[in-house]
């Protein structure tokens, strides 16, 4: 073992170019397991879905080329497409800011050096681990049902409740609450960010007589904007793709009256319930474009409010 190793390093490098080629090759060989997985299970299906989005494909017979028919039908005539977009936007625009505010708030409290911090951190993180699961979605039905926990509590205060998940006016709100409740993972990231803020800045501010509100807005908030931005992008993308809660709570239909018809749920319904796989593929590509657009928009806007510390 030892001798071969030395022999190799002792060999003079003949030409720089050859050396890099060989190095590259080694690199690629080590990359291979991931690369194969990526091409076969990610890139391949992505390209296939792009092709399928221009076809009529019912899973059982061969896809049939229809040009931009699917896109045309979706964008100009499908009322449920507009409805599912509106449901999804409402969900993203309300749940993401609420969730981030709650996460930051809890992180600030935990950052004050409470005893048993790891316990609290784990406790608050728990919903994030459970939140996307089927069990929690079923629990949600129990909490917000007509005989559910929420109405029982309201009854103590003499308020007559209603079926929160059964009514189209409130069904989406319960899903937003479910999403906000899963503030754990942005909270943990915020906590890590808060620990990075140099203590010396607060000491200096104290000496200058700044109160804690001023310290928060002048020191903490500007310095954690990169963390805020990171959480915002991540949570926004995952909120756009929300699926499980709506699927479980409405039994996969988007009921009542399409009020919980999330975009991803509608894709699923078109693909696996109506066998319009080409149509569903077109929907997925529109979703991709929308998410890319908002991510780029976010990055563009970030120049105006995200402070990376190494500037000026």
């Amino acid at each position: 073992m030892q001798s071969t190793l030395t022999a190799r390093t002792d060999q003079p490098v003949k030409s720089g170019r050859k050396f890099t080629l060989r190095q590259d090759l080694t690199g690629y060989i080590f990359l291979l397991p991931w690369l194969i997985g990526f091409v076969v299970f990610t890139l391949g299906p992505i390209l296939a879905s792009l092709y399928l989005s221009f076809t009529n494909y019912d899973l059982m017979t061969m896809p049939e080329w229809v040009g931009i028919f699917n896109y045309n039908r979706l964008l100009t005539r499908d009322a449920r497409f507009a409805q599912s977009m509106s449901v999804t936007f409402t969900f993203v625009v309300t749940s993401v800011p609420l969730q981030l505010i709650v996460a930051l708030g809890i992180a600030l409290v935990l950052n004050r050096g409470i005893r048993g911090l790891p316990w609290y951190r784990a406790l608050f993180y728990l919903p994030s681990l459970l939140g996307g699961s089927v069990a929690i979605a079923i629990l949600w039905r129990q909490v917000f049902g007509n005989d559910g926990l929420l109405n029982q509590i309201l009854l103590i205060f003499g308020i007559e409740g209603q079926s929160w998940i059964g009514s189209p006016d409130t069904a989406l709100s319960t899903l937003i609450v479910l999403r906000v409740w899963q503030f754990g993972s942005p909270m943990v990231i915020f906590l890590a960010g808060l620990k990075q803020v140099p203590q010396s800045l607060y000491e200096a501010a104290n000496i200058d007589g700044a109160n804690s509100v001023q310290q928060f807005f002048k020191i903490t908030l500007p310095l954690i904007t990169p963390i805020f931005f990171f959480n915002l992008v991540l949570q926004m993308i995952s909120a756009f793709q929300a699926f499980t809660p709506a699927y479980i709570i409405s039994d996969g239909t988007g009921a009542p009256a399409d009020s919980t018809l999330f975009y991803s749920l509608y894709i699923y319904i078109q693909g696996f319930r109506y066998f319009r796989m080409g149509y569903a593929a077109a929907m997925a590509w529109i979703m991709l474009i929308v998410i890319v657009f908002f991510t780029i928009l976010n990055f563009g806007l970030s120049r105006f409010w995200v402070f990376y510390g190494d500037e000026d």
């Binding site: 049902g145 079926s163 998940i165 059964g166 009514s167 039994d251 009921a255 009542p256």
Partner: peptide
Amino acid sequence: PPDITQEYAN
């Protein structure tokens, strides 16, 4: 009423 019906669906 419909919200009760909805809740007992499935």
